[in-house]
Design a protein around this nucleic acid. Sequence first.
DNA 1: TATTGTTATACTCTATAACTATA
DNA 2: TATAGTTATAGAGTATAACAATA
Lengths: 171, 171
Amino acid sequence: MASLAPRRSKGPRAGLELSDADALAQVSFVVLGTLGRRASEHGLSIIQTRLLGVLRDRTPSMNELARVLELDKSSVTGLVDRAEDRGLVARIPSPADRRSVQVALTHRGRSLAAQATDSFEADVGELLDGLSPAQRRTLAGLLGRVVLDYARGRGLDISEPRGPSAGRASS
Amino acid sequence: MASLAPRRSKGPRAGLELSDADALAQVSFVVLGTLGRRASEHGLSIIQTRLLGVLRDRTPSMNELARVLELDKSSVTGLVDRAEDRGLVARIPSPADRRSVQVALTHRGRSLAAQATDSFEADVGELLDGLSPAQRRTLAGLLGRVVLDYARGRGLDISEPRGPSAGRASS
DNA sequence: TATTGTTATACTCTATAACTATA
DNA sequence: TATAGTTATAGAGTATAACAATA
């Protein structure tokens, strides 16, 4: 019975009876709405911000980017085009394969991403203002688990560092 | 230091050290991505699904819809246009104010929304597969609290039923 | 005058299909 | 042939500004 929208509770107890799906969907709308507003203050969209975030510690090919962002490769072409036009990322020819390019952050892109994420962090702090530090830790732990499980299910094991072209273990 | 993207952990312990902002952002991407895929199986977008969800127990004006969805009124015009073209919603002239319309679900819209949310519920169940029932309850409780706080902060107190035209402060 | 909603316009984002260049 | 990436095209979604009708 997910409403996918805030609903008034009908019983005597006030409004905390959300299903898992409702709670997750509603929080996701709020979180990405907040992220979007902050991003737009810096002239970025959500997906552009996400692109910059992904590039923070990677230099993926267009194909890899498409897989990580779950977009068609042609969508990534446009996304990277617009970011490149604005000087936020750069296409670097792959040394190994002349068909391929690697996408990297420019200094300007890195700086802009840092600004946007900093203000987003502050927003999240405000969003979680009603939770105790212990509750925040609990929440972050549970959500982290969910993310990790999802990534594993998609074959993207983020707990084991892998280079963009190499498959190497951390230790 | 939000990366807004899955990151490899650098320490010896494997990848669960996410900041609040990272955890929330990443889960939101996953949740809305899942919702989007399900919705598209039913020919809906995320925002169309959300529109139908909002209309599940309300018949708001265009203005109210814009406020709830946090969109410009002109965006809502297009959104409702496309939904109306597909027979999912209907514009009903407001009896009280001849400038205003009320937007309502059609039977087809209600049925489609139910289908989409049902499969989304199943997806969320799968997403939370790694959590115990107790952990799920904890998660839903914490998230519900966050949503409620946010709605209160915006003056949309969802725990207190209000008519569409009433405007009352909660604090 | 103020408010409700639509229209005109421009841009981002997205996917599908066809294409080029390289492997 | 297969793969990496781009281009062409079409459509959804969004905001700003100007507008019409009503209050």
